[in-house]
Design a protein around this nucleic acid. Structure first.
Lengths: 203, 203, 203, 203
DNA sequence: TATGAATGAGTGTTCATTCAT
DNA sequence: AATGAATGAACACTCATTCAT
């Protein structure tokens, strides 16, 4: 018989993750202290350790639960779209403007995380998993388009999907550090123009 | 004997930067210690502080002198190529295989640096400068192509250049963390195919 | 229903003491946590604090109720023996083999406790009381033997008893830390041989 | 070319060990903090870590360098004595009064250490080594006595030596915690009386 | 100029104890 | 009475930086 309801515990857990995300984004994982997180979420230091075994686990959980769920989110948000091309357009839209409007911190978390991925195998695997799942989803869209004769027959779905994601996250990374050349709207237009020119040349 | 001394000093400075780069790449900036750098370059801790005022300055110098000089390097290596398209092909080649063969660590340094850029304004400005210079260089190639009637007239050189660089560094970042989908050769081919389809549709 | 409740309480109290003893023996008093004890006895942390005011009190209770009762136990187990010499033999037997067979953990508890006795006056007094009571009991056996003309007339009962106990606990301590030279059977034989040679020289 | 002489370093090391010994004796190993040691020896916390990798290593060094050298010290101090019996007398004297006059803290360190030996294998091995070396030395004295026909022929040198040491440290332990019955002079007399009665019964 | 010993503030983590439920 | 979540002070250990030699 838990004295505290399971929902309550989950709320606390999410509060810690929210606080940690904010702090990691603000100063990076290494510079963030448990005290920072504690102050931000209002729980004591000790309480945080009842929810996560150590600092690394907090980061890892963020990678898995926040970044890692992007692929599902993606699929849910784009499957309503019409033909493969419209789905692709929708995806690119999510990458640029929409994703940042709905989840404006994810881009920053991605960057804070990428830096750790070099040293931390688990974080790395978490990011690779996310990447792989997104590639797989977008590949399938392209494959559909090819199968339907909508896209050029010699297109390599996996390579295109990978390229698209690298572009998306490359844009995200430079956008996060306020690079003046990086204007999301312009880049979305350019990306779509190139995709269309390649995939649907006749049109 | 100022001459010998000055050369000597510069050698030492470069030795420190080399060591720091290796260490930053290996464990990230925050986890790297001055002791690590000292051990690697053979100079004492105190000596390092005669060349750089603090740890941050070492990082910043790396950003400026190593990453920051990429644009010049780029220009030098590609201006020998023929028409704009060939220059573009050359650039993409440098981004993917060639850059990593000649300067295999730059990609990793970029990632180690990006993470710090969020918090550190100077590092951020360093990276922005590098990005801007590269964009500017590649823009000019595209602009030449348009002017020569080789590329489509309505191409937006700046947007395309920005996109290309975001893609390049996005690829670099995921390549650095060993993402299995990221194969440099395949991605280079796909990038060029899309560029060509967009810029030179008739062909 | 005070009767049932009181029994129940005492059962719980003993369960806590059992658990604490096991834990203290396993990792020492300082390293043992209330959580360890809680896990082992199945009571919650909070419940333990309803039986004992703090961690120190648990230790102290163990010293008083478990170690401190050794003298009574001793008296009960040896008074059935025959003449003083046989009683002494019985005592030495209890010190070495028998004590460890019947109460194998007491030796370890003694050691876990001795370390704390230096800093904690109450624990110290508990151990001193136990020691004094045992000395007093064994002294009386020797005194009887002297009075009966069985043991040499000039024997100092208190000194011999003290010495015997120091030996016994010295052996216990080194036995507890697995000292290879310490073989209980051999040492018992040697102890008895010396005692006999001293107390009953003619024989 | 060390900036600081080797002797100076060794002095500092010994200062840390002195301070640690005092602190460990005063509050036990677990309760002693690095800050305590730092305050007592006047070196900063960080400096201590240049001489010892961690707290445990300080303890272990004490066991090895202070307690562990007891056997050599013993041999040196007693080999000048005459026949085996006189050497034994000398040893017992060292165990009781003399040892405590010359090295009054060793007994307390022994106790502080014994408690840790249960959990810490290295400390345990250190103490076992000390014990074994002392047993070996005293055994050899007894063996000599037997060989010279001075001691009874059926004496078991190893068992007697082990017993003697257990007694000695048992006495030390109870003396350290101020047990009122434990008077070193009286116990020494009693020990020698028993030894003589056993080893040299004719006399 | 170079060295590396010393400093000491700062960090992740633990755990005895409390108290709302 | 019992629970176990929460508290927060305390501690081992690290590391950027300084400075005597």
């Amino acid at each position: 018989m838990p004295r505290v309801s399971a929902e309550h515990k989950e709320q606390r857990r999410q509060a810690i993750l929210d606080a940690a995300m904010a702090v990691f984004i603000g100063k990076g994982y290494q510079l963030a202290t448990i005290d920072d997180i504690s102050n931000r979420c209002g729980l004591s230091v000790g309480a945080i350790y009842r929810y996560f075994h150590n600092k690394g686990e907090i980061m890892l959980t963020l990678v898995e639960e926040r970044l890692g769920r992007t692929p599902e989110l993606f699929a849910r948000l784009t499957e309503t779209a019409g033909d493969p091309w419209e789905q692709l357009v929708h995806c690119v839209g999510l990458f640029t403007s929409a994703l940042r409007v709905r989840h404006p911190v994810t881009g920053r978390l991605l960057l804070a995380t990428l830096g750790e991925a070099v040293q931390d195998g688990e974080v790395r695997r978490g990011l690779q998993g996310r990447f792989g799942a997104l590639v797989s989803y977008i590949s399938s869209i392209i494959r559909d388009g090819v199968a339907q004769g909508l896209f050029r027959a010699d297109a390599d779905p996996a390579a295109l999907a990978t390229l698209l994601l690298c572009t998306a996250d490359g844009v995200a990374v430079y956008w996060v550090i306020d690079t003046p050349e990086v204007d999301l709207r312009t880049l979305r237009t350019a990306t779509l123009a190139m995709l269309r020119a390649y995939l649907m040349p006749k049109e």
